[in-house]
């Protein structure tokens, strides 16, 4: 299977940040989504961390690290003016209660119905258990759910699939998908290709994507 060179992870995160409107409350998951915060400085966007913090600051380096202050990925973070702490039930009331405007998560697979799989890798052989964390709550309560991920696995296997072969996190919840090769939107008819990596053709993207792609009439290069 052919593997194309595309955007580095940091730049996928930059593209996601452009899709987040000012005055939004946003939750960022583990992996590429965490990197989105690097591009939100100076923006009027408030980050919610499910450990129990609103207005999460940047990652804390060296002496600035405080053992009582981490994000939900177990990284030391900083407090900024206006930061707020709260307990876990209140945090998940924000998440499940529909108060978060945008949730960005990573995924193993997404299908054309907007189902996605992120919580368990069956090849770990753990007899049907894995790390759910806050993923299902976040998907259930999200007003907008974005997936940020590589377009294929390291071996070149498509992650945009017809049928999930990994256990689902949630069904019909994904709105947009940001990969190293393309920006796509889940629409009632399937997956719509909106933007592609400069130099790639529609058929290149199709060759590393299982479902037949719909193509936006105003298809363009990825806008950064």
């Amino acid at each position: 299977m052919r593997k194309y060179e595309g955007l580095p992870r940091e730049i996928i995160a930059l593209r996601v940040s452009k899709e987040i409107e000012d005055n939004s409350y946003v939750n960022l998951g583990i992996g590429i989504p965490t990197l989105v915060s690097n591009w939100l400085e100076g923006r009027d966007v408030i980050l919610q961390s499910e450990i129990g913090m609103l207005k999460t600051g940047s990652l804390a380096e060296g002496d600035a690290a405080d053992q009582d202050l981490i994000n939900a990925s177990c990284q030391p973070v900083t407090e900024v003016e206006g930061s707020v702490y709260f307990d876990i039930c209140e945090s998940f009331a924000m998440i499940r209660g529909g108060h978060i405007d945008v949730t960005v998560m990573g995924a193993f697979q997404v299908n054309e119905a907007g189902d996605f799989a992120s919580w368990m890798n069956p090849s770990r052989g753990l007899n049907g258990v894995g790390n759910i964390g806050g993923s299902m709550d976040l998907a259930s309560g999200a007003r907008k759910l974005f997936i940020a991920m590589e377009h294929t696995t390291r071996e070149g296997t498509p992650k945009l699939v017809r049928e999930l072969t990994y256990p689902a996190t949630a069904r019909k919840k994904v709105h947009k998908i940001f990969t190293d090769l393309a920006v796509l939107e889940v629409v009632p008819e399937g997956i719509l290709l909106r933007e592609l990596y400069p130099g790639l053709r529609i058929e290149d993207i199709q060759s590393v994507t299982e479902p037949k792609l719909l193509v936006a009439p105003d298809l363009k290069e990825i806008e950064l």
């Binding site: 499910e50 876990i88 039930c89 945090s91 998940f92 998440i95 499940r96 052989g125 753990l126 007899n127 258990v129 894995g130 790390n131 759910i132 964390g133 806050g134 993923s135 299902m136 709550d137």
Partner: peptide
């Protein structure tokens, strides 16, 4: 993880918000 695989330790997993509500 070896004991979870062998079944020596039972491991039950819930969505985090659901688990927090179970305690509440």
């Amino acid at each position: 993880e070896q004991k979870v695989r062998s079944g020596e330790i039972e491991f039950e997993v819930y969505p985090m918000g659901t688990l927090s509500e179970k305690y509440r």
